[in-house]
C-alpha cells in the first residue's frame, strides 16, 4: 500500500497525481481512484488566501498543461517497472 492525497470532485474521488507550475499558475493532475486511465486537469485559483480548484479555460490551456506533464514524465513510460 502507499499513502496518496485525494480530493472529492463532482464526479468522484480523485488522486493528486502531480502538480506543475506553469507561468506562475499551479496545475493539478488528478486521476480517478478507481481507474488510472481516467484523469482530468484543474488549476489552482487563490482567493482570500485560500486555494480553490477550477477548470481550465480553453483547449490551448489544456494542451499546454498536457505538454508540461509530458516534458516532465516522458521517460517514465520507458522505465516503468
Amino acid at each position: 500500500m502507499e499513502e496518496v492525497k485525494v480530493i472529492d470532485l463532482e464526479n468522484g474521488t480523485f488522486v493528486i497525481t502531480d502538480e506543475i507550475l506553469i507561468n506562475g499558475i499551479k496545475y493539478v493532475y488528478l486521476t480517478n481512484e478507481n481507474d488510472v486511465m481516467d484523469f482530468c486537469i484543474r488549476k489552482v485559483k487563490i482567493e482570500n488566501n485560500e486555494e480553490y480548484l477550477v477548470k481550465l479555460e480553453s483547449d490551448q490551456e489544456f494542451d499546454t498543461a498536457i505538454q508540461a506533464f509530458l516534458n516532465k514524465h516522458q521517460d517514465e513510460l520507458k522505465n516503468f517497472n
Partner: peptide, 12 residues
Amino acid sequence: KIKYQTRPKNKQ
C-alpha cells in the same frame, strides 16, 4: 469552486 484541500488515503 472546490477548495483545494486534500486528505490522505491508502491505495495499492
